[in-house]
Amino acid sequence: MNAATVFGLLATALVGVGLYGFIVNPQPLRKILAFNVIGSGVFLLFGAIARRGAALGLGGDPVPQALLITGIVVAFSATALAVTVLLRLFDETGSTTLSSGVAPSASEPDPAKARE
């Protein structure tokens, strides 16, 4: 197995781990974090594909590598905006819950609401 295959397979695992975290972690900040893990998995997969395109003494295909730099910067912009929205939500409401007033699971009472 060469580097492209090892890190390509790692990338697929990272997408899965991030997706799991995105679904099961209730805190919005954890969702943003998990989304970044998914994103880095996608980037790494693209990087493995770029590595496979190595030719003429270049270590990888420069076009996907350049797109990756753009992608990482855009992912940062989106994360910064999401985190700021979240902090403003916390300042306004004192809470960051995503549950919609109805108890998140019908069987259990929501302790966060009960305390208010």
């Binding site: 679904i23 805190q27 900040l29 943003i32 990482i72 940062f76 985190v83």
Partner: peptide, 29 residues
């Protein structure tokens, strides 16, 4: 950017939102 700036952004936000942690644990699916 990916590790450094994004990481700093998330660490700072998590420190500010520490008070919401207990409530969030109860929302675990």
């Amino acid at each position: 950017i990916g590790g450094g700036l994004t990481g700093l952004l998330l660490v700072r936000a998590s420190a500010k939102l520490r008070a919401t942690e207990a409530a969030a644990r109860a929302e675990r699916p």
